[in-house]
Design a protein around this nucleic acid. Structure first.
Lengths: 281, 281
DNA sequence: TGACAAGTGAAAAAAAATTTCCAAAAATTG
DNA sequence: CAATTTTTGGAAATTTTTTTTCACTTGTCA
């Protein structure tokens, strides 16, 4: 039984500071456990005695024994790091493991549903400084769109997130010029608003990039590029991890393409942000 | 300079027993050096003082320093094969494929850093209808927190998302009762606001559930549960897919646990929503 | 062969780490 | 809200580890 297993096995019935230890140990496994008690205690923000009690509680005779075991695991794991991970609790078939496994799968499938060509065309659109970028998502998927704008705003100027309320759109619509880009996210339980926005945008010769699922939002009729990612998980709700991963891929590719500019912008950004927070004091 | 290099560099001018040590150290590098002095001395068939003298001779301040360095090397070594592997893949399979692959991996690792026990305790907290749920995230990570509140609001009542502006917090803080739960998301480039909010909440006996990365937000000091997920990707920006996946897992587990109630709520919700949109027309 | 230098380990000393004990603080319960 | 239980960290005690001291051995060279 690995130390990791011992930890997760005993992880009910743990006290507040013992949980802090678990977090510290697992988040830098196995190295956190190879520090001295004093050091580990410091990292986890607990007292050395708590560490000592913890090791006894999960069934180890001493802290030293835990270290011996961790080293042994490390030595074994040298053979294959992958094996070490597979060892975990996956066997127990826990809910979390299952969910995450399926989520990871979804992400892989996203790569099949979007071609590299499509991907790079989209990236090129976002990289072009002459085009302004607008973005909006549906009720829930707007968080995905927000993620895009947050990051894109750091990489370049001319990025605008539309408010959810259609009443406020005209202002933005008037600002759109031919060649600009609007990024829309719309997953099932599609919203007619989004489709309408796509239509209006398209009529103004704005390029519509649509992130949707395989059943495809009605906005597809007006889209220049359609990125269809898998979202169904077999649980009550759909998973947006694949969508988020795709957006992150786009954003980070844009950022790399415009690296120098990006760096300057981020530096500036931070400077301004610091100024603002200084002022508050 | 690695310990191995130090050893071979100084390997002229070594005495008989020091050579025995070199042999022992190199034949089981780096693990032999992680034993205690006494054990290593035994393995190499020399006395402990010889080990001590040896480490000084090759230019280390103490035996302890050698161990620290060896662990550091081990940690680096663990990392690099994975990275190399990923980088190779990426060039072959295109940017998107590479990015998604790494994202999927991150999600798997998230399962190692969070135990099923921890996961279910958090779910239980969120399921308890007597507790109100508050949530907030950092500048960018707030999208993750939003995702939680959006979904949780459908599953139960008493879910509130705090505004980003601290000026508006008091109203919410006053509403908090002992036993309530606050869900905070804070990734590196941590925000002092979040830590402060955690502190205040904890002082009001509100349970603090913290979603953070392995470097751990300063808010950890006040957290009841710490969910540490991997976020570093080797690109300019961190990836929040693992965080999103974790939140989705929580939300969908909560929903399943309270399935019946949830179904009613969703039905009601949709009814109200339809009514509202009917009206608009 | 004997004097000396270099190397070595036993034992002692010093330092560090770990565990135990206990009282204060926090949480829980009736 | 008081009483009880649990949890926690400081301090002391204990154990372990590491380093230093020192005397003894070994080998070398005059």
């Amino acid at each position: 039984m690995t130390v990791r297993n011992l930890i997760s096995k005993g992880s009910d019935r743990l006290t507040h500071s013992e949980r802090k230890l678990v977090a510290a140990l697992l988040s830098d496994y196995p190295f956190a456990g190879l520090l001295s008690i004093r050091e580990l205690a410091e990292v986890a923000n607990v007292s050395p005695p708590s560490v000592s009690r913890f090791t006894s509680k999960i069934g180890l005779s001493s802290y030293n024994e835990m270290q011996r075991r961790l080293l042994e695991e490390l030595r074994e794991g040298e053979r294959s790091p992958v094996e070490l991970h597979d060892f975990g609790e996956r066997i127990e078939g826990g809910y979390l493991q299952g969910f995450l496994g399926r989520a990871a799968e979804k992400i892989q499938f996203a790569g099949d549903a979007i071609t590299e060509g499509q991907f790079h065309r989209v990236v090129t659109l976002f990289t072009d400084p002459k085009r302004e970028i607008f973005a909006l998502g549906g009720r829930i998927s707007d968080t995905i769109a927000l993620h895009l704008t947050f990051h894109l705003k750091q990489a370049r100027s001319g990025v605008l997130h539309l408010p959810r309320d259609p009443e406020a759109w005209p202002e933005y619509l008037l600002r759109m010029n031919p060649g600009d880009v609007i990024f829309l996210v719309d997953f099932r339980r599609y919203e007619s608003n989004i489709a309408r926005l796509a239509e209006i945008s398209a009529s103004r010769r704005v390029q519509v990039v649509l992130l949707t699922d395989k059943w495809m939002s009605p906005a597809k009729r007006h889209a220049t590029e359609i990125l269809a990612v898998p979202i169904e998980t077999g649980t009550i709700w759909d998973s947006y991890v694949a969508a988020l991963a795709t957006v992150e891929a786009i954003v980070s590719c844009v950022a790399e393409d415009t690296w120098r500019k990006t760096r300057n912008r981020i530096t500036e950004w931070d400077a301004v942000r610091n100024l603002a927070s200084e002022k508050r004091k």
